[in-house]
Amino acid sequence: MQPPTPAPSRRRLSLDWLGIAPFVAFVALFLILPTMNIVLGAFRTPAGDYTLANVRGLFTPSIMASYWISIKISLASAILGCLIGFSVAAAIVLGGLPKWIRSPMLTFSGVASNFAGVPLAFAFLATLGPVGLVTVFLRTQFGLDLRMMGFSILSFWGLTITYLFFQIPLMILIITPALDGLKREWREAAAILGATGFQYWRMVAFPILFPSILGTLALLFANSFGAVATAIALTGSSLSIVPILLFAQIRGDVLGDPHLGYALAFGMIVITGVANGLYIWLRARSERWLK
């Protein structure tokens, strides 16, 4: 028998939980279970027995090559996005530019970071594609042939440059508040203690921003790693990155083994999961300092 007092509160509690039952049911049915289904599928044979063979199957040269090029593109676009986005945000916040630039720039970043997928690919094809605006301009005005120089919008760098269109604004949106958080007194305190501007950045400002920057890097990485539409619309299937491979696998089992497909998807979850976990952990760290 339970003691009499906790019983009513316990019943109240379970009734309260009923209030979010629809939400729990929805996410279970349309988010958690489908994902678990894939994850479990990655560790099962078609007969239903547990196995590691599928995951081991990922370590074949062609699949590893897919992961490798995906990781390279995601890293390149994340690092460049961080660098350029940081420069632009620093210019807006600390560069002594006119104040009115800030608000339109942030609004525009909000739009641009949401402008991804198929239309983004079209925009870059129309700009840097074989008959794109910039390509033609460089060829006719300067005699520079991008294709002769080895550049193609359908390549590693083409995809990276295209991804940067949403990566840079995302970095601007996330890092601007962090830059706002740098107090003027820190700079002044460092200066009066004898530090040069460079020493202030090296010993104070950069260490303070570092978790935010690294965290955003992880976020940008995951952001481009999971991007499917832009890549498909831009390159068709000529560039074999993981999302394109998975897309083709779901459509027509190009790997010839459905369970290898689950393993492929599982690998994606692991990579984006690690990147996002890193992001959450680093953000918590930087907030701890600045609360």
Binding site: P34, N37, I38, V228
Partner: peptide
């Protein structure tokens, strides 16, 4: 965190 392509993959299976 979970790419959309993985979620829809799960839908198709489930």
């Amino acid at each position: 965190v979970i790419p959309a392509i993985v979620i829809v993959f799960g839908y198709i299976r489930m």
